[in-house]
Simulated scan of single mutants.
Amino acid sequence: MPVVLSLNIAQRTVPVDYAQEGATGIDKRPVDGPLDVRAPGPKGTAGSGVAGDAIADIVHHGGEHQAVYAYAREDLDWWQAELGTDLRNGQFGENLTTSGIDQTHARIGERWRVGTALLEVTAPRIPCRTFAGFLGRTGWVKRFTQVARPGAYFRVREPGTIASSDEITVVHRPEHDVTVELFFRAVLTEPALLPRLLEAGDSVPPEIIDLVHRRTTVQLDS
Results as ranks from 00 to 15, higher is better:
residue 141 V to E: 03
residue 125 R to H: 08
residue 145 T to P: 00
residue 133 G to Y: 04
residue 173 R to T: 13
residue 171 V to I: 07
residue 119 L to E: 03
residue 157 R to L: 13
residue 148 A to E: 00
residue 73 R to F: 01
residue 154 F to H: 03
residue 89 N to R: 08
residue 78 W to D: 14
residue 85 T to N: 08
residue 58 I to L: 15
residue 141 V to L: 00
residue 68 V to L: 02
residue 199 E to Q: 15
residue 190 E to N: 14
residue 187 V to Y: 11
residue 125 R to T: 05
residue 154 F to N: 02
residue 113 R to K: 13
residue 79 W to M: 08
residue 161 T to K: 14
residue 178 V to Q: 09
residue 61 H to K: 13
residue 175 E to A: 15
residue 115 G to V: 12
residue 186 A to F: 12
residue 149 R to E: 01
residue 85 T to F: 05
residue 176 H to N: 12
residue 171 V to P: 07
residue 180 V to H: 09
residue 107 R to N: 15
residue 81 A to W: 02
residue 113 R to V: 06
residue 142 K to P: 02
residue 172 H to E: 10
residue 161 T to C: 15
residue 111 R to K: 15
residue 185 R to W: 14
residue 187 V to C: 09
residue 120 E to A: 03
residue 175 E to S: 14
residue 122 T to E: 04
residue 95 N to D: 10
residue 133 G to S: 11
residue 136 G to L: 03
residue 73 R to T: 04
residue 117 A to L: 12
residue 96 L to A: 08
residue 144 F to W: 01
residue 146 Q to W: 00
residue 144 F to D: 03
residue 172 H to V: 10
residue 112 W to P: 14
residue 60 H to V: 13
residue 197 L to T: 11
residue 157 R to F: 07
residue 112 W to G: 12
residue 185 R to Q: 15
residue 140 W to I: 01
residue 101 I to H: 10
residue 173 R to P: 04
residue 159 P to W: 04
residue 120 E to W: 05
residue 139 G to H: 01
residue 128 C to Q: 07
residue 53 D to E: 13
residue 122 T to P: 12
residue 155 R to Y: 05
residue 86 D to E: 15
residue 101 I to R: 03
residue 85 T to H: 09
residue 100 G to I: 13
residue 114 V to R: 02
residue 77 D to E: 12
residue 193 L to H: 12
residue 55 I to G: 14
residue 112 W to Q: 12
residue 78 W to K: 06
residue 113 R to Q: 14
residue 130 T to L: 08
residue 112 W to R: 09
residue 189 T to M: 10
residue 82 E to C: 14
residue 154 F to D: 00
residue 195 P to T: 11
residue 60 H to F: 13
residue 187 V to G: 09
residue 66 Q to L: 06
residue 111 R to F: 12
residue 193 L to A: 11
residue 77 D to H: 06
residue 145 T to Q: 00
residue 151 G to L: 02
residue 122 T to G: 07
residue 132 A to C: 06
residue 109 G to A: 13
residue 68 V to A: 01
residue 119 L to Q: 03
residue 125 R to K: 09
residue 58 I to H: 12
residue 163 A to T: 12
residue 174 P to L: 04
residue 160 G to R: 05
residue 70 A to E: 05
residue 197 L to A: 10
residue 129 R to V: 15
residue 85 T to G: 10
residue 136 G to W: 04
residue 98 T to R: 08
residue 69 Y to C: 02
residue 179 T to N: 09
residue 115 G to M: 07
residue 77 D to A: 11
residue 145 T to K: 00
residue 115 G to C: 09
residue 140 W to Q: 05
residue 194 L to N: 07
residue 138 T to W: 02
residue 118 L to R: 06
residue 167 E to N: 00
residue 147 V to D: 00
residue 144 F to C: 04
residue 53 D to W: 10
residue 109 G to E: 09
residue 93 G to H: 08
residue 117 A to Y: 10
residue 62 G to R: 02
residue 128 C to W: 11
residue 72 A to I: 04
residue 100 G to E: 12
residue 53 D to R: 09
residue 74 E to Q: 01
residue 195 P to Y: 11
residue 78 W to C: 10
residue 88 R to V: 15
residue 143 R to L: 02
residue 179 T to R: 06
residue 79 W to S: 06
residue 120 E to N: 02
residue 159 P to N: 01
residue 148 A to G: 00
residue 137 R to L: 06
residue 116 T to D: 12
residue 81 A to P: 02
residue 182 L to E: 10
